[in-house]
Each structure stands twice: as C-alpha cells, then as structure tokens.
Amino acid sequence: MEITLIQGILLALVAFICGLDSCWEAFYWFRPIVVAFFAGIALGNVQIGLAAGAVSELAYLGLMTIGGTVPPDPLMAGMMTTVLAYTTGQDVKTTLGLALPFALVAQWFGIMCNTLFAGFLSPLDRAAEKADVKKFNGIIYLALAIKAGLYALLTFVSAYALQNGVRAFVDSFPTWFIHGFEIAGGLLPGVGLALLLVVMLKKQNVAYLFIGFIMATFLNVGNVLPIAIVAGAIAFISFQNDMKDKKFEEALEAAKLGGSQNDGI
C-alpha cells in the first residue's frame, strides 16, 4: 500500500520521539516492539505493527549498546519492518531481513553523532568552568535535537520519499528469495539469544539453561512467564544461600581470630 504524506510525517514524528529515547535508553520506546506499535498506529494498521514488533524485538534482543559499541539500530529495524510489511504486503518475517540495510544506515548515523558530539565537549567544558548553565543545557538540547532529527529525516526519506523505488526493488525478487528472508526471520532471534548468552552464561548457571529449555519444550505454557517465575524462585533461593554462606564464613573468621588469641594466652 501507498504511504501518504500525512503518514510519512506521522512516522517521522514517531521516529523523532522514539529517537530522543534512543539517546536516553530511559523509557525503552526505542525498542522495536514500541516503535512498530506506534508506526502501526500512524499507518492505521495496528495489527501489522504488533506482528512486526514481536518479530523484530526478539531479533534485536541481544544487540546492546554496552560499553559504547553501536549495534544495528533497533529503532530503525522496528520502523522499517513495519513500513515494508505495509508497503510491499510481504510477511513481517520477510521484511525483518529487508529492514536490515536501514538499521545499518541508522547505525552509521549513530556512530557519526557519537563522534560529532565529542566536538561539543570543549564548549561544554568552558560553560562548566563559568557555571554558564544556560549555555551548558543549550548544547545538550542541541545534541538531542540533532540525533532525534536525523532519525526523523531518515524515516521520512526511507518510508515516504523512496517508497516506490523500494517496493519495485522488492517486487522484483523471485519467490525463493523472499521465502529465504522468511526463514531468516525465524532464525534471527537466535542471534539475539546467543549474544545474551555470551555475557550471561557461566559454569555456575549453565544447568538452568537446560531446565528452562526442557520446561518450554514439554510443558504446555502459553508464554515464558511461568518459567520466569520458577527461575525467579530459584534465583531467590540462590541469593539467600549466598548470604547465609557469607554470614557463616564471617562467623568462622571471627571464631578463628578469637581462637588464636586464646592460644596466645
């Protein structure tokens, strides 16, 4: 379906608001599930937004900004998975893969901003030295406006201005190629989960991975909440035991200390 000018502007507005949160990582409105939902509302098709959000949120789960690294952009992924599903009529699993180039462009914009804003530091330093709060805050608001504005611009261009070109390009793909992207849509959440495991998985907790996996495979659970509750219970038990061990060790240390003193006498 065609995206109208009004829809294009609404999408850019969504990108601007979520783009602010992409700087802050505060409300998590930069996450694909929220971006896609808002984009669905802007397009007047909430169902596409919900489906696209579910698929892209999971694919971009483990891609985190820890330590200042910049991964493919989740905001743009959620946005374009929705927009492409709307314009091309393809399944959201397919458009998840097709949205990757847009997420990459946003990633480059992110790297560009993080580099550009290093140049804002010396004016900020000077404002701090003079306690010039107005100037200090002004520079910060300018940086926010630049980054969120870039998101809005990129969205408007990709979703509205270039839509015919993108659609024609996608329409020229053979069926097996499109189906390949659909398969990839089913596999990509694995990348997110594996990335989470790279940071979380340790010898002391690897057993719980298999317990969770077997529960999900053989119990008829609608979502992961029951497993999360059992996991929370186990985590709580572990925490309490660790605390008990620590107290015990401290008592042991104290006893040892007292004992040696007695020997001295």
């Binding site: 596999l187 694995g190 992961v224 996991a231």
Partner: peptide, 21 residues
C-alpha cells in the same frame, strides 16, 4: 549471580518458542 540464573533460565525457555528452525 542470582540475576544470571534468572536470565539464563528464561533464555533457555525462549529458545523453543522464538526460533523456528
């Protein structure tokens, strides 16, 4: 450590439902 147990077990539970291979 407690957060690790919780997170890893949930990821284990996510594998069957969210990856279609």
């Amino acid at each position: 450590k407690a957060a690790g147990i919780l997170g890893v077990m949930v990821v284990g539970g996510l594998i069957p439902s969210y990856i279609s291979f």
